[in-house]
C-alpha cells in the first residue's frame, strides 16, 4: 500500500518535527537570564534562599532530566505545574485560550464579511474614484498600528460616546450581554485591520478574473458585469483566501496580544508575556508548545489531505 507507506512516512516526519520542536523550545526558553526563584524573592533575597527555593521547585536538577520529565508528562497531557501557583499549566492555559479564541474566532469571519464587499467593489470600480477610494482606505487600514486603532476606538466609543465599556473581558457563561458589549471594541479593531488586509487579496482575485477567458465568455453571453464577477470570482478567490486565512491563524492567536493589552483581556498572548516576566518557564513552555503543536498538526493534516487528493504525491516526493 503506497498510500499507507507514504502516510506513515509523513507521520514519522511529523512526530520527529514535534520532538525536535519541543527540544528547541525547551532549550531557548531555559536560556533566559534570571530565574523564577530570583524574581519571586525579588529585592532583598539572599543567595541561600534563592537556592532553597530552586531546590524546592526542582530547578537544581540537570537540564536533560527536566526536559525528559516535561516531555514524558506531555505525552499523557500533563504540561507540568506552574512553579508560582502550583496549579497545572493546562488549567491556566484553558481560560486564556478561550478568550483568545473568541476574539480571533469572531474576527476572522467578520473580517471576511468586510473584506469581500470591499475587495469586490474596489475591483469592480477600480477605474473610478469610488473604487480607488475604497482601495486607498484599505491601504490606510493596513498601515494602521492595531493598538493605535484600538486606543482611538476606545476614546471615541467608550470615553466620549459611552456606547461600550472601555475594556475588560467577561466570560459568556457569566453574562451574555456583558460578554457581547465588551467584545465589540476589540473585535471591531481586529476586524478593521484584518478586513483591510484581506480586502487586497479579494480585490486582486477579482481583478484576475476580469482578464480570464471564462469571464469574457460569460459577459459575451449576456451576463452582467456583477453577476459574472460574483459567480466566477468568488470561486477563484475562495481557495486563495482560505489559504491566507489559514496561514494567519497562528500569528493571529498570539498577534492578538496587542488587542489584549489595549482592552485588558486575559488572553493567551498576555499569559505568555506575564509568564516570561515572572520566569514561570513551565507556563511559557506549555503555551509555546501548544501553539507550535497546533500549527504543525494543521500542516500535517493538510499534507495528508493532499496525499489523498493527488496520487502523484504518494510516491513519497516532498
Amino acid at each position: 500500500m503506497p498510500v499507507l507507506r507514504a502516510a506513515l512516512r509523513r507521520l514519522t516526519i511529523f512526530v520527529g518535527t514535534v520532538l525536535v520542536a519541543s527540544l528547541v523550545i525547551f532549550l531557548i526558553i531555559q536560556a533566559l537570564p534570571g530565574d523564577v526563584a530570583q524574581v519571586t524573592l525579588g529585592v532583598g533575597a539572599s543567595p541561600d534562599d534563592v537556592d532553597a527555593l530552586r531546590q524546592k521547585w526542582g530547578l537544581d536538577r540537570p537540564l536533560i532530566i527536566r526536559y525528559f520529565e516535561w516531555l514524558g508528562g506531555m505525552l499523557h497531557g500533563d504540561f507540568g505545574a506552574s512553579y508560582l501557583k502550583g496549579q497545572p499549566v493546562v488549567s491556566q492555559i484553558t481560560p486564556r485560550l478561550a478568550v483568545t479564541l473568541w476574539i480571533v474566532g469572531l474576527s476572522i469571519p467578520l473580517s471576511l464579511l468586510v473584506a469581500i464587499p470591499m475587495g469586490l467593489f474596489s475591483a469592480m470600480m477600480r477605474r473610478r474614484w469610488s473604487g480607488a477610494l475604497i482601495n486607498a482606505l484599505s491601504h490606510v487600514g493596513l498601515a494602521m498600528p492595531v493598538f493605535f486603532l484600538g486606543v482611538l476606538l476606545t476614546m471615541v466609543f467608550a470615553v466620549h460616546l459611552g456606547w461600550f465599556p472601555a475594556n475588560r473581558y467577561v466570560p459568556i457563561t457569566k453574562s451574555v450581554s456583558q460578554w457581547a458589549s465588551r467584545m465589540v471594541l476589540p473585535v471591531m479593531t481586529l476586524v478593521l485591520v484584518q478586513g483591510c488586509f484581506l480586502a487586497r487579496y479579494v480585490r486582486a482575485g477579482f481583478i484576475d478574473v476580469l482578464g480570464e477567458d471564462y469571464y469574457r465568455t460569460a459577459r459575451a453571453s449576456g451576463w452582467t458585469k456583477w453577476r459574472g464577477l460574483v459567480r466566477h470570482g468568488m470561486r477563484n478567490m475562495a481557495t486563495s483566501l482560505v489559504t491566507v486565512v489559514g496561514l494567519q491563524i497562528s500569528s493571529l492567536l498570539v498577534g492578538a496580544v496587542l488587542i489584549e493589552e489595549v482592552f485588558v483581556l486575559p488572553g493567551l498572548g498576555s499569559l505568555l508575556i506575564d509568564a516570561v516576566g515572572s520566569r514561570d518557564l513551565v507556563v511559557v513552555q506549555g503555551v509555546v508548545m501548544l501553539l507550535v503543536f497546533a500549527v504543525l498538526l494543521i500542516n500535517f493534516l493538510v499534507d495528508l489531505a493532499y496525499l489523498w487528493i493527488d496520487p502523484r504525491l504518494r510516491r513519497g516526493a516532498a
Binding site: T154, M155, A158, V159, P165, A166, V262, V264
Partner: peptide, 8 residues
Amino acid sequence: AMVSAMLS
C-alpha cells in the same frame, strides 16, 4: 486603559 476604564 486605567484612565478610560475610570472615565467610562
